[in-house]
């Protein structure tokens, strides 16, 4: 695949190395001449010195034949513009943007960016997983953002313990898709009764995640 990486900071640098090691054709675009020279010294002639937000630069580096454009500069707005221009003007089928402000995820999806990666959100959800056992923990956001896959462990004291799925007070836009019981995945029916130590995987609309929390959490 031909992959264009815009932004030669730490993320762009390590991403480029990783992709090269897998045999992809990679070009990294970096506007700071010193940084561009450093990367060239370290990994070879895979750097284009220029501003990846500029139409002309994207034209020069053959963006139209790129399979993927990844924008990983430290500025959300630059990553947005790069991906939008790549997609709309050059017809790139897959664009990936890094964001710092996790609140930008929704609008980026709405503006046509295929994948949005927020390290802030990833780290936050790892911390949540550490501290929130027994609660509803976000696992992943589905493409286009508004749906979340979450998991919840059922404790003995949970209001959902020993109740059938159909009798749970679930928020209207949520669905229990899988129950993990003694290490095995069970596809639940309405009559499936949740037991303590079960882990429930559910799909839920992002705004209703807190309501789902109430379904499973032990009230203290």
């Amino acid at each position: 695949m031909y992959i264009i990486v815009v932004g030669g900071g730490q993320v762009g640098y390590h991403l480029t190395r990783t992709l090269l090691s897998k045999g992809h054709e990679v070009l990294v675009v970096e506007k700071d001449p010193r940084r561009a020279a450093d990367i060239t010294d370290e990994i070879g002639p895979v750097v284009f010195e220029g501003d990846g937000c500029e139409f002309r630069v994207l034209q020069q580096i053959g963006t139209a034949r790129a399979d993927v454009v990844v924008a990983v500069t430290g500025d959300d707005e630059d990553n947005l513009v790069t991906c939008q221009v790549a997609k709309r003007k050059f017809g790139v089928s897959r664009t990936i943007a890094r964001i710092s402000d996790p609140r930008n995820e929704d609008i980026f999806h709405r503006l046509g960016i295929d994948d949005v990666v927020s390290s802030t959100k990833v780290i936050d959800s790892l911390i949540e997983q550490e501290i929130a056992t027994g609660d509803v923990v976000p696992l992943a956001a589905l493409r286009r953002g508004s749906l979340e896959i979450v998991e919840a462990s059922i404790r003995e004291t949970s209001p959902a313990a020993n109740r059938a799925v159909r009798d749970l007070d679930l928020p209207p836009e949520s669905l229990i898709t899988c129950v993990i019981r003694e290490g095995k995945a069970v596809l639940p029916q309405g009559e499936t009764v949740l037991r303590p130590d079960d882990v429930v995987i559910a799909l839920v609309r992002a705004e209703q995640q807190e309501d789902l929390q109430a379904t499973f959490r032990t009230s203290s």
Partner: peptide, 28 residues
């Protein structure tokens, strides 16, 4: 790029009826 992003947030998210953005780069 900041103007482009703010303009799109205003239009797509907040449905502001008229949004204008200053852009210095003619191609952009």
């Amino acid at each position: 790029n900041r103007n482009i992003m703010i303009a799109q947030v205003a239009r797509e998210k907040f449905r502001v009826p008229l949004v204008l953005a200053r852009i210095v780069d003619s191609l952009r």
